[in-house]
Design a protein around this nucleic acid. Structure first.
Lengths: 237, 237
DNA sequence: TCGTAGTTACGTACGGCGTACGTAGTGCGC
DNA sequence: GCGCACTACGTACGCCGTACGTAACTACGA
């Protein structure tokens, strides 16, 4: 063995306590909670090893006893958020159950607006992610399809929900790091877009914007999107 | 006017040349190309203002004459990549045309693996994004639906493609910043997952993994996903 | 025609980041 | 009860984005 720093590992496989040495002062849950608190209050970019350590009240480098790399801290955060997902006994209607899953996921992301950004496929197998996946599959028991198809359904639903919420939250989250307000940002991007469209170079875009001046009902758009995804998996008759 | 540093602006609205002062040494395209070259070769995290300036052969701070903030550099990159999208005259079959769009988008993301990470909804209105959108709408001319629905279709297709490719590339891109190889990473995550499943706590996951030992055909999965999205928008008969 | 305002170019510097490394103290397993 | 694996954490390094100041330069208004 040359250097042991480069040994691959998943944080979930590493035991929280090994027996030897002093009792650790914090649990993984403590650390995740601290990081989540910071991200909720000040945005994901405020989550640094130093900041989390300060929140916990310990030295910066002590954190590295619990979390080998910053990426693992992110994994902890995603898993902690996933733990808030309350599951239920499926009622036998897979469509209704999956709609419920999607709505809860959206609500979760509204509560933790940094979630979409961390929703990398890599973090897909944390303990709570496994719980969540198993629950989705349970909801899909009534659907007659191979598990492969069911996994594709879950993946697609998650993709659509994540993308939708990311869109919803985009400017709001962006505004955190900008030296001007969200309203200014929106006004300015709107003005620019209007100018571009007014050139006549994008006739269909122009028509699209001219089409319906009514306010967009995000809830309806979301519901429609979910319905379409699920329709794609309904057994043909 | 107090400070003019905080005036909101889109980089695309700012003229490349104002007339006064010395002739700029580079164009926006030069800068975008340099950044894209670095990201392609060394990963997105290697793209820093210093690195891009070095690639161009100018001082770090000179870059800020062209690009007010690093985020704008990202916008430039996304737009430059979008410029590679070759468009065509729609043939009248919106389904076939949208499939083609999706396949080209996927190919583009394979060529520029950092694209999914930058595919924030905020960058949605760069010049080439507008071109792309207009082209999608042109492809959708034969589809009898309001423009709102068509935009929803494009958004959903993009979400699915982006999520799919992000999944495809996940470990490969991740391996760039890890001190161990992609194979080690995969082996280790696989071993961990196998261990979790072997506990029996996730019976459906276990069944899913036991179901089909054959190799997954990514192309087929992709095609199926696209088909399902488009089905959701096909006019009911 | 010429002064000057608005540019470009870019060196220096600041505060922050992730984290490698070394040292000191602690408590379980042999 | 010895030793080792662990915890705690200060220091330091090399990055990062970027604010600011200075010098050279050019097109415009007088």
């Amino acid at each position: 063995m040359t250097g042991r720093a480069a040994e691959p590992e998943v944080i979930w496989a590493r035991p929280e306590r090994t027996g030897r040495g002093p009792r650790p002062a914090y649990t993984r849950a403590d650390i995740a909670a601290a990081a989540v608190r910071i991200a909720d209050a000040e945005g994901l970019d405020a989550v640094s090893m130093r900041r989390v350590a300060a929140e916990l009240g310990c030295g910066t480098m002590s954190l590295y006893n619990y979390v080998p790399r910053k990426e693992d801290l992110y994994e902890l955060m995603v898993d902690a958020a996933g733990g808030e997902h309350e599951l239920w006994e499926p009622r036998g209607d897979w469509r209704a159950d999956m709609l419920r899953v999607a709505h809860r996921t959206r609500a979760l992301m509204h509560r933790h607006p940094w979630l979409p950004r961390l929703m990398s496929p890599v973090y897909g197998f944390s303990p709570n992610a496994l719980r969540y996946l198993e629950h989705c599959l349970a909801c899909l028991d009534p659907l007659e399809a191979p598990y492969g198809t069911k996994l594709e359904l879950v993946a697609m639903l998650n993709a659509v929900v994540t993308s939708f919420v990311a869109n919803e939250l985009a400017t709001a989250e962006r505004a955190r790091s900008l030296p001007w307000s969200e309203e200014q940002e929106n006004a300015m991007r709107g003005a620019y877009l209007g100018g571009r469209i007014a050139t006549g170079a994008y006739p269909r875009m122009a028509a699209a914007f001219a089409e319906d001046p009514g306010p967009i009902d995000l809830e309806a758009v979301f519901e429609r999107a979910l319905g379409r995804v699920l329709d794609g998996f309904a057994p043909r008759r």
